[in-house]
Design a protein around this nucleic acid. Sequence first.
DNA 1: TTTAGTATCACACAATTGTGTGAGAAAAGC
DNA 2: GCTTTTCTCACACAATTGTGTGATACTAAA
Lengths: 213, 213
Amino acid sequence: MEKIKVLLADDHQIMLDGLKAIFAKDKSIEVVGTANNGLEVLEFLKNEPVDVLLLDLQMPVMDGLETTMHVNKSHPDVRVIMLTTNDEGSIITSLFKVGATGYLLKNASKEYLIQGIKDAFEGKKVLSAHLTEKMIESLHDNPKPREGEIPKITKREIEVVKLIAQEFTTQEIADALFVSTNTVATHKRNLFVKMDVKNSVGMIKKAVDWGLI
Amino acid sequence: MEKIKVLLADDHQIMLDGLKAIFAKDKSIEVVGTANNGLEVLEFLKNEPVDVLLLDLQMPVMDGLETTMHVNKSHPDVRVIMLTTNDEGSIITSLFKVGATGYLLKNASKEYLIQGIKDAFEGKKVLSAHLTEKMIESLHDNPKPREGEIPKITKREIEVVKLIAQEFTTQEIADALFVSTNTVATHKRNLFVKMDVKNSVGMIKKAVDWGLI
DNA sequence: TTTAGTATCACACAATTGTGTGAGAAAAGC
DNA sequence: GCTTTTCTCACACAATTGTGTGATACTAAA
């Protein structure tokens, strides 16, 4: 039987080593490569065939969400499983929207992880048990809860968020972006509404949570 | 030769599995147990001898720093290596202060990790290369830089930080703590100075970073 | 081409935050 | 017991943030 070709992507070398070691023992899975960020993933896919991509959500350079989108466009046959510590239900929907096949928490057991890869290979959706519960829970709470949980934040808005996170004042942000303070204030206003927060503190917390910055 | 007895502590099961797999191949290291938080570590140490403790800095229930302190009091012979993603030089000094033997970044290679454990076992201090550089750098910048890098934040101040993180206004915090707004403002003022930040946003970011909240 | 979204700006005003300074009482540490 | 830290509060004022409302221009999608 042909082994399932798996590509690992995580910015932590130890994580990669650990995963490799885990899969080394399994006869049906073969780790064909590793990558430290999304760009390396795309590069790798150009040259080598891959069945399942195990992807860390949090990565520098190009994060998991963005990578998934790109991979799905250029290699729609590759199954993507997101691996992350994040257990916020909020992100799941956008995950499947960009074309991920599965989503596993890093604190899942290795058996679950291996099974997840096999399931993904067979085209099944994969979800951490913990997350499945969360999903069902949230469905119970609101009949039609939040569709696109993570709202679309524009490029400009993200620039503003990043500068706020660096303790810039509105005036300083305006100077940095060569716009008026009014404009910056408007961006902030819109961000507050979009992100459903009360002030900059809440915004930055959520931005970090969502991997925006 | 007797194997080095290693206890692993991390809140992510996959991390534990990965580390176990890595060490399984090494003849001089034996993983004698795993723990998901500091409390479990202390519990384990009561019953079993351990040479080296590999500890995740970020853990729920009882974090790495706190655990190190406890371990050092009750089992001073156990070498503690902190394993973390955090690369802020700021935390290193306080680490050694509480009695850790070493500090490794999670993106270190597995070879480095194994060597680190052996070094720690022999009583050597262990530092990620990356961090050593940082330390030297910071020594260059300021002859006598920041001694106790993470300042002592009082209980009350932490309460304030937590409430700010929850988007409470000064008035709301005052109400919640049954004190005047002036008092809350003073706490904030003191926190800004202690934490060396410009505003609440910076404070919350650093608080998250330091594991205060 | 009409609509929806993005990015820009103005003006005004309320609310909140942050700063400077000083100080008293209680708790903790030595 | 004495000292230091912690927690408390006041008053005043400057700076910044956040809100409400409306408007123009450009772009991309339907």
